[in-house]
Simulated scan of single mutants.
Amino acid sequence: MRFVHDTLPQRVVFASGGATEGVATEVGRLAAARVMVIAAPAAAELADRVTRGIPVALRHDEVVMHVPLDVAERAREAAAAHNVDAIVSVGGGSTTGLAKAVALTTGLPVVAVPTTYAGSEATDVWGLTEGATKSTGSDRRVLPHSVVYDAELTLGLPKRMTVASGLNALAHCVDSLWAPKADPINAALATEGARALADGLRRVDADPTDLAGREHTLYGAYLAAVAFASAGSGLHHKICHVLGGRYNLPHAQTHAVVLPYVLALNAPNAPEAEARLARAFGSATALEGLQSLRAALDAPRALRDHGLAEADLPDAVTAVLPVVPPSNPTPATADNLGALLRAAWEGADPS
């Protein structure tokens, strides 16, 4: 074993039903006196409840998928105008992403309160979209100072979004096994994350009120994100970032659709990763386990169902090719990427 592993410094508070108290404690630890609360309009009532014990100077609700640059600039200007000294984000990946965009240029500490399984709260990865291009990077300034996980906050998440968000988290596990900085510690986190997500999502699907199942899913999503933050973006995430930024496809659903096709492409040339995932799913092969889970959850099936036009497929291949990580187990070509995207667009059998 010869590797260098980087562990990100972050406090994690995990307490179902304890979000309000947890947020107050974390903001108090920062000694913040003028807090910016970022939450989409649909989460306004929830955000009010979660942040009632802190000194709120500004509530900001312009949250847009893929964090367009102009939206980020307006949030930064609002933060400066109100002289805020900390940010609390309450919501999914787009909300956390906007908080990160503000932190990127201001250095303000973020307390993240996730309401989905996006995982952005546990990484130092930021993303901004300008025109048809989504740019991403890593910067310690955007890593939330602390995360408050409260499984009760996910009870209102619709079933279809629960499935898509959970499979988005699972994609972090899969990509972490062959991403540019994959290492044995990332692999251990990713494998346990995959096991927890598969178990938790099945339980939540069977009974949406199963709080323990939601806790298990959140736990898996956190492990997945920690592995991903260290390992970096693999082929799956490079594809999805291109599709999301270039064609404005929904983030979680895109990840949910593309995942089995990337696994099918890479598994034959990554036997150790494939075996780990198979064990995590309790199946004969990784792809069989993933497909069994997707079938049980009635997961999103085809990119054409989420806004990608068939005519855009050649352009997508051209855009993905230059960003394919050299570490990808199966060398990417125009032909196999074209076949992958065509199959994902159609919702064809990934095998």
Results as ranks from 00 to 15, higher is better:
residue 134 K to S: 14
residue 44 A to I: 09
residue 24 A to F: 02
residue 87 I to E: 03
residue 203 R to D: 05
residue 180 P to V: 07
residue 87 I to Y: 00
residue 54 I to D: 00
residue 20 T to F: 09
residue 118 A to T: 12
residue 344 A to P: 11
residue 199 D to N: 13
residue 103 A to L: 13
residue 131 G to L: 02
residue 307 G to M: 14
residue 126 W to I: 00
residue 255 H to L: 10
residue 321 L to E: 09
residue 286 A to C: 10
residue 56 V to I: 15
residue 38 I to Q: 00
residue 5 H to F: 13
residue 256 A to G: 14
residue 172 H to A: 05
residue 276 R to M: 08
residue 204 V to D: 01
residue 187 A to F: 01
residue 81 A to I: 04
residue 80 A to Y: 00
residue 26 E to T: 06
residue 243 L to E: 09
residue 65 M to R: 15
residue 30 L to K: 12
residue 302 A to V: 04
residue 143 L to K: 04
residue 256 A to D: 11
residue 155 L to P: 02
residue 72 A to R: 02
residue 180 P to I: 15
residue 239 I to S: 12
residue 242 V to N: 04
residue 180 P to L: 06
residue 47 A to N: 05
residue 342 R to P: 15
residue 301 R to V: 03
residue 86 A to D: 03
residue 282 G to Q: 12
residue 184 P to L: 09
residue 150 D to G: 13
residue 202 R to V: 08
residue 145 H to T: 10
residue 89 S to Y: 01
residue 21 E to H: 14
residue 304 R to Q: 05
residue 154 T to V: 13
residue 301 R to D: 02
residue 55 P to D: 09
residue 86 A to L: 08
residue 327 S to K: 05
residue 13 V to G: 10
residue 252 A to K: 01
residue 203 R to I: 14
residue 11 R to K: 15
residue 264 A to W: 01
residue 330 T to C: 01
residue 124 D to M: 11
residue 226 V to M: 12
residue 47 A to R: 03
residue 346 E to H: 15
residue 52 R to N: 15
residue 263 L to N: 12
residue 189 L to H: 15
residue 197 L to G: 02
